[in-house]
Design a binder for these strands. Structure first.
Lengths: 223, 223
DNA sequence: TCAGATAATGACTGATGGTCAGTCAAGATA
DNA sequence: TATCTTGACTGACCATCAGTCATTATCTGA
């Protein structure tokens, strides 16, 4: 059935065009200031058409966010495929997240909405589930790496991989959130070196997780 | 002029009544679902009257949030006025923040909006400034304590007090955010012990900041 | 060529944040 | 006591915008 397939492709393409237009408008104006009329105009479609592809404005917003998740996932894959020692890979992961933060600030900020369920009024269950699946993929990567570190006796064996992943992630994320909000103030008024702060925080938690043996072995990584 | 003063008091009281009504409605429905008409009805006033006291819905929301800040500040003051050693006081601070998170979840969640400037469409500069003043008060408390710890050689003297405060805070905050969102999932499906996770993360960063001497002296605090 | 299906849309609705001209009562003035 | 002034308060209103639906346009297979 060549026709059915072509139609499928065209529909998918249209979905993509809408997403592209939405991204442009959301990046420019943010969730609340962006209007569906504007996105429709950008996509050269009627507003009603958007609703044939996405159930609500919030769903569309989250769909754009998921593109960001994919960018992040690719960065993470690259960072952990260098063949370096596991500890270095975990360090790379932190650097990759920081890179995502610096280079894709627009995507980074979209998580603000996602992580504030109080603000969700029209998010469909399907979209929420899709977002969680995306999340899981990334968690899986991190947890796998930590498991490896424990198996190699780089990380202590009395820590829980999931708990550890959460701590590592929350530490980096909490700081970057804070940085995003306070960046100019910190840099200019308080003279805080942002890169150094993040690196230091990461060092603190990593060292808490490492075995004494690994601390000696990889001392060079933390100078 | 007794009359002017009485009127002043009455105006202040009305402001408080509006705040009270707003809190009730916002806690029940969240920022987006709550309507100004509903808050007005709860306060037994016309909607227009609300705008004589607060410039916008978002301002009103942040005004409620600031009540939460005050609750938090009081908890912090109590936690650090016990006369215990400085390191214990810093630990207490973390516990106090966790207590705030557990007992005042509604207030805690209001920060989600405050910390996402992308979502601000009608926040007045005055209100923003007031929120920042509130923030500063709390930062001052934390930074002061860290300075004390450095002076007492409990914390290393090569760390910056402000940087350290940021790391401590972001670590706790990032984790609690994550917990807020994932609490049921973590507890039930992943069997993660939330209290223990937070405590462990705090231990990791604290130990990174401490001098070797203090680590020996206060080993008991981390078991 | 035409019937049926699917894609697309413009006009519409309902909800809601915010505004404003006007009311009314308490206090000032005489 | 009668009149004026002030300012707190309000109801009716407006503008905006997410989301809906009846209708139209386009394509396809017979």
């Amino acid at each position: 059935m060549g026709i059915a397939e072509r139609k499928e492709r065209e529909k998918e393409a249209r979905r993509g065009e809408i997403l592209e237009a939405a991204e442009k408008v959301f990046f420019e104006k943010g969730l609340n200031q962006a209007t569906m009329d504007e996105i429709a105009a950008e996509a050269e479609l009627g507003k009603s058409t958007l609703y044939l592809y996405y159930r609500s404005k919030e769903d569309l917003y989250l769909a754009v966010m998921m593109r960001g998740s994919e960018v992040m996932f690719r960065l993470f894959m690259e960072a952990t495929s260098t063949g370096e020692p596991t500890l270095k890979l975990i360090r790379n992961l932190g650097d990759a997240y920081y890179e995502f933060f610096k280079k894709h600030r627009n995507y980074f900020r979209m998580y603000y909405f996602f992580e504030s369920p109080d603000l969700h009024t029209q998010v469909s269950d399907e979209m929420k589930a899709a977002c969680f699946r995306n999340d899981e993929k990334i968690w899986g990567l991190v947890i796998g790496l930590i498991r490896k570190a424990i198996a190699e006796k780089v990380f202590r064996d009395d820590i829980d991989p999931q708990q550890t992943a959460v701590i590592l992630w929350a530490n980096a994320n909490g700081l970057m959130r804070q940085m995003d909000r306070m960046e100019p103030y910190w840099r200019d008024a308080m003279k805080i070196d942002l890169d150094a702060t993040l690196r230091r925080a990461n060092t603190f938690v990593l060292q808490g997780m490492m075995t004494d043996k690994a601390k000696k072995q990889f001392a060079g990584l933390f100078e």
